[in-house]
Design a protein around this nucleic acid. Structure first.
Lengths: 207, 207
DNA sequence: CAGGTTTTCGCCTTTCGGTCGAAAACGTGG
DNA sequence: CCACGTTTTCGACCGAAAGGCGAAAACCTG
């Protein structure tokens, strides 16, 4: 989500939301406050620090050190945004201001990595979804196609997926109606990565 | 590596090395400069940003926003340090200043996670090592025992390990002399994590 | 040379991930 | 109402990865 700068520097270029750190807040409170001016922050399903960007010349004029965050919203949310603000596909960004394109690339890389070895998928998915919808989400976020069969098995084995019992309405071209799933409650915050080199005799999975 | 504060605030408590950001440097250059006052920074095998700590009351007096880094040195290095500075086991930290204990815990957690799904092990190991020495390193960093057999197999399969041909001198109680290994050159920087949910038909491993 | 110690290696089992194709469950059009 | 296309689901198979175990190897000491 970018907004188009009206004034110099970098007028007309697109910019990440953000702003100065207030005296009574930490950086996460600050970014949530900045975002609240753009969207309904209650729709944020996940927020995490990305990195500090501090090159002396990253912005013209006085030195500005930025703490970049990754904020995710479920794919079904279409928040109302101000007129200068729109969503852009991360693969086709417009001309961006300052180092914001590099920040976006880092964020995209972080997302792709964490999708694979954590339960972060919950943050991208709507409350209920079909496996093929989830497959599309993962494929888009990872940048390559994944198998629906395998995706379902891997997430299920990790104890993340749960069938709702309902089925989705069928599409215009027919086909078997898809079962609806949700991420299990209690796994809606990011947890430990799924590690290799486990402790010996760890028969603790799936719970 | 902590140094003991001589003056208030938090006199006599132990503190992470660090300091202010200079006008002509980014945060990584800054932390390397700060560390250079304590140790030989050429021994640093890996440096990465950890997180920003920015609670308004994290230090008394004017607000200080800190960008914390993780810096690793190989286990065989014993750098000369100033008289106020010593190494401490991360499981038994002394009384620390400010929020530095929380920072250490986060760093420890980050290290344990990354050891598992990246090639970060190279940063902890000396240039040459035996498998059991490496096993000790991994066990200490992860906080639980790992199998030497499995560790060697996993790292070998990832193409990270290479035998030197030499063997280590035997210990006082005898036993078969251990073969020496090294991390393969070219893998001495952190690379992409080893991901699950791979793209279809990716026959690209081991190279 | 017997006994103790440590490392190494091969074998086995389990788990995991990837692939494929058949079957199921819908529409639609003759 | 039946043949056909479409989409989803599921089971089966396979290879790769990881964990576990014990025998063998290679050293010491007495």
């Amino acid at each position: 989500m970018l907004w188009q700068r009206a004034r110099e520097p970098h007028a007309h270029r697109w910019s990440l939301p953000g702003g100065g750190l207030g005296p009574e807040e930490d950086v996460e409170a600050s970014i949530r406050r900045q975002l609240a001016e753009k969207v309904d922050v209650r729709q944020l399903s996940h927020v995490e620090q990305l990195a500090v960007f501090s090159a002396p010349d990253r912005v013209p004029g006085p030195r500005v050190v930025a703490t970049a965050f990754v904020g995710l919203v479920p794919s079904d949310t279409d928040p109302v945004v101000p007129s200068d603000t729109t969503w852009h596909p991360v693969d086709a960004l417009p001309a961006t201001a300052f180092d914001h394109e590099a920040i976006c690339r880092r964020a995209r890389s972080r997302l792709a990595s964490k999708l694979s070895y954590t339960n972060l998928g919950f943050a991208l998915a709507p409350p209920e979804f079909t496996i093929s919808a989830l497959r599309s989400l993962y494929s888009a976020a990872l940048g390559y196609e994944v198998s629906a069969t395998n995706l379902q098995r891997v997430l299920s084995r990790r104890g993340l997926l749960e069938p709702t019992g309902a089925v989705a309405p069928v599409g215009p071209s027919g086909g078997r109606p898809a079962a609806l799933f949700r991420f299990v409650a209690g796994r809606l915050r990011i947890t430990d990565p799924f590690a290799v080199l486990r402790p010996p005799s760890s028969r603790n999975l799936g719970t």
